[in-house]
Each structure stands twice: as C-alpha cells, then as structure tokens.
C-alpha cells in the first residue's frame, strides 16, 4: 500500500496552479487583453459608422489627426488639472481628518462610520445631489451665500466657465476624501504607540513627532492610497458627465474618448484616443511607482 507512486506527481504539481488560475485568466483576458488588442487594431483604421465607408487601414492617421486636435489637448489639460488638484486636496484633507479622528479614542468608531457614507454613495447620486445643491436659482449653497451676504445673486456653479471645474473638484473631494481617511487611519494604527512615547521622552514636540515618526511610517500606506486615487482621477468619467454634461470646459480624456466612440460613431478615431488614454495612464503609474519606490507585490 505504500508502493512508490511514479514521479509524475511533480508534473501534476507543476500544472496544478495553472488549472486553478485558468478560469480567472480566461475571463480576465476576454475583458482586458483581447479588447485592448482590438482597440489597438481599430486605432489604426478609418472606421466610422457615420459615413458608411468600409473600415480601411490608415496607419498613424488617427494619431496624427489627434495631435492637431485642440479639443483633445483641452481634455488632457482638464484631466491633468483635475487629477493633480483633487488628489492633492484629498491627501491633505485625508491626513488632517485621519489625525483628528485618531487624536482621541472617544468617538473614533462613530466618525469612521460617518466617513463611510460619502464613500458608499454612487458617484452618479452624489453628482445629482450636488447638482441640486449648486443649482443657480434654487440651490441651498447659493441661498446660504446670499443670506450671509457673500454674493448678491445666484451663481451657476456647474455651468460657468471658471466654476464648473471647481465644482467638480469640490464634489470629488467630498466623495473620496473619506476613502483616504479610512486607509490613512488603518496606516496610523500599525504605527507602534510606544514610538510616540519614546519621542515624548526625547522631548520631541508634536510637529516633530508628525514629521519624524508619523509621516515616514505612514508613507508606504499613503503612497499606495495616492496611487489608487491618482489612477481613479485620471480615468474619471461619471462625475463630469453628470455634473456638467460633456461641456468642453470640463471634458476629461475619458469623456472625450467616449464622445468620439459613441456619440460621433467614429470608432477608429475614438480607439486612437482610448489608446492614448491607456498610454498616459500607464505612464503615470510607471513614473509614480518608480519615483515613490513603493512595492506593490511582496514576494
């Protein structure tokens, strides 16, 4: 009964992990790798559903046209502006609020629960909520500002050239700062408390404790949280789509790409836009990971 089984068991061992991974890898390839390849292929085609022509290969034609497309570059600027400002504000507010919540044990659980509310609200819902709050005639924000005497008549926040982007950033900050707070709180919790006691014994004032203990030890968590937020911000779609309905002033690269693909039915050009979006996001991620030296995969 203890007869030697053939060493084929090592062969089984080698393919076993791949058998377990296969369903997941196949599904993932179907929704990422294959469509990506198709998008790449289409980006070299003239393929417009509008003019009824058959698709034909045009090399880098779409990309060359894109380089001269003012609306595209405008969308790139919008996206970069939105991503940098909103992520910066969210990080600063996130750290501040997390430290505030962490400062006293009392009420920590309740505050954390409150933080989960904006995070759980669907983006479309928060866009609609804020749209209503920021309404030029009946919005509660204008009403309060008028009552307090800051302005004399309602401002069309989501429609005005200067204010639309500010409004979008404000809503994004409101909605996603809680996510930062939750991650930072978890990061703060893994910093050993006796380090602060040691610092106190060493006579380090509060600000020094923050800069020499909290920040360096929080950094790995913070860096990952910022990366997640940054990638989310660069591909932002729904907020601007609902809040200021595709206006040129606030269109992000994702909105611009979908406009070309769906609204104008220009599949080739839209695919080229999508490919550039992909390249830009990969570049942002690669540079960020290089610069911050965060390790996402632990061996």
């Amino acid at each position: 009964m203890m007869a030697e089984t053939a060493p084929q068991s090592s062969w089984v061992k080698r393919i076993e992990p791949w058998l377990l991974l296969a369903p997941m890898l196949i599904v993932l390839a179907t929704v990422t790798a294959w469509p990506l390849a198709r998008t790449a292929y289409l980006s070299f085609m003239h393929a417009s559903l509008d003019d009824g022509d058959l698709p034909r290969f045009i090399g880098f034609g779409n990309y060359l046209a894109l380089m001269k497309d003012g609306d595209w570059w405008h969308a790139v600027r919008n996206t970069a502006f939105f991503a940098v400002i909103s992520v910066t504000l969210e990080t600063l507010a996130g750290v501040a609020i997390a430290l505030l919540i962490d400062s006293q044990i009392k009420g920590r659980g309740a505050l954390r629960a409150v933080m989960l509310i904006p995070w759980a609200i669907p983006t479309v819902v928060s866009a609609q909520m804020w749209q209503w709050m920021l309404h030029d005639q009946y919005g509660v924000v204008n009403a309060l500002l008028i009552k307090l005497g800051f302005i004399s008549h309602g401002i069309a926040w989501t429609a005005g050239a200067g204010t639309a982007m500010a409004a979008i950033i404000a809503v994004d900050v409101w909605q996603t700062t809680p996510f930062m707070v939750l991650l930072i709180l978890a990061g703060l919790q893994i910093i050993p408390r006796d380090l602060y006691e040691a610092a106190k014994v060493d006579g380090a004032p509060g600000w020094a404790q923050f800069f020499y203990i909290t920040l360096p030890l929080l950094w790995p968590t913070l860096a990952v949280a910022i990366l997640f937020r940054l990638l989310d911000a660069v591909r932002m779609f729904d907020l601007a789509y609902v809040l200021s309905s595709k206006s040129r002033e606030t269109a992000t690269i994702s909105i611009y790409a979908r406009q070309q693909l769906v609204d104008f039915q220009d599949v080739g050009y839209g695919s080229a836009v999508a490919m550039l979006v992909f390249l830009m996001i990969s570049l942002v991620a690669a540079v960020y990971i290089q610069v911050t030296k965060i390790r996402l995969i632990s061996e």
């Binding site: 009964m1 203890m2 030697e4 089984t5 060493p7 068991s9």
Partner: peptide, 23 residues
C-alpha cells in the same frame, strides 16, 4: 520534497508517497 537520497519507513522507500499515505 527531498532533492536526493532515500527515506524508508518500515523498509519501504517513501520518497514519492504523499504524506497521508506514509502512515
């Protein structure tokens, strides 16, 4: 898994016998 040599339990070589069957 061992990289070389033999393990015998009750005289029988068990190098490739799964743990549950080694008694």
């Amino acid at each position: 898994d061992i990289s070389g040599g033999d393990i015998r339990i009750g005289g029988e070589i068990v190098n490739h016998v799964p743990p549950a069957e080694r008694q």
